[in-house]
Nucleic acid binder design. Structure first.
Lengths: 129, 129
DNA sequence: GGCCTTGCTTACTATTCGTAAGTACATACA
DNA sequence: TGTATGTACTTACGAATAGTAAGCAAGGCC
């Protein structure tokens, strides 16, 4: 029985992220991408315009911001509303499932910030050794 | 006041992942990296040898497995024990903080697997529109 | 001697990413 | 009237990163 011939529903039901072709791998990639993480955290704080996100997510390029927002929109985690005005006005916000995802991501980010001293100690200890 | 001159401790205390030079960004990058996520999930299930990880984390190359394990070890999340035998025998396991990180990651992965049908529906709806 | 094993490392290539510039208007200001 | 500014992107191109495949060390087995 080859993996590729296995019915979609089976893979979904089993929910096997560890498997190469599992569709959850893609979603995981979008959500945990370098900028996806930060965008979700910011959007958890409310609706933002493109340029507001660009300013808040320090270091993101317009290219990657646009691309990552398209991924997240494609996965149904982010909603995009464009007002047909000039100059353009576009608002991004989280969908209900987007809010769930953002909750998990923020929990992880918060944890890292809390544990950062421990992690830095570990890094320093390794350098010393 | 320039960001780069701001004392390290201040940035740490504030724990600002959104800032470009915050050290938590690096850790976040390692933990949420494509293979970091899956490695943490597997290691949560217990100690594994290099080749066992390679088999369980479907699709990872030896190059990226080694590199990601080194990141996680450097951050103090993974412990590496090498037995001086031939052929080599190396065991990887989670440290206490590694176990905490893995818990958050697995919560996210589990959530994605549960929500995958909804996400796929959202994707399909967009394609139709 | 030749081959097998494990846990890497090292070249080389493919993919992705960051940087900078361009676009289409409208408004502000000189 | 002309120039500058702001928005939300897209596009080209060089740089960084990831994937592929091969190599390596050193002992055991036949």
């Amino acid at each position: 029985m080859e993996k590729d011939l296995e019915p979609f529903s089976t893979r979904v039901r089993r929910g096997a992220v560890l498997e190469r072709n599992c569709p959850s791998r893609e979603v995981l990639k979008h959500v945990t991408s370098q900028w996806g993480v930060l965008i979700l955290i910011v959007l958890e704080g409310g609706t933002h315009r493109f340029s507001e996100l660009r300013r808040k997510v320090d270091g993101v390029s317009e290219r990657m911001l646009a691309q990552t927002l398209q991924w997240l929109e494609g996965d149904g985690l982010v909603e995009r509303i464009a007002y047909p005005v000039v100059p353009p006005h576009v608002e991004y916000s989280l969908t209900p499932i987007g809010r769930e995802a953002a909750g998990h991501i923020r929990a992880l980010a918060d944890w890292i910030e809390v544990r950062l001293p421990d992690i830095c100690d570990a890094q320093a200890a390794r350098v010393a050794a």
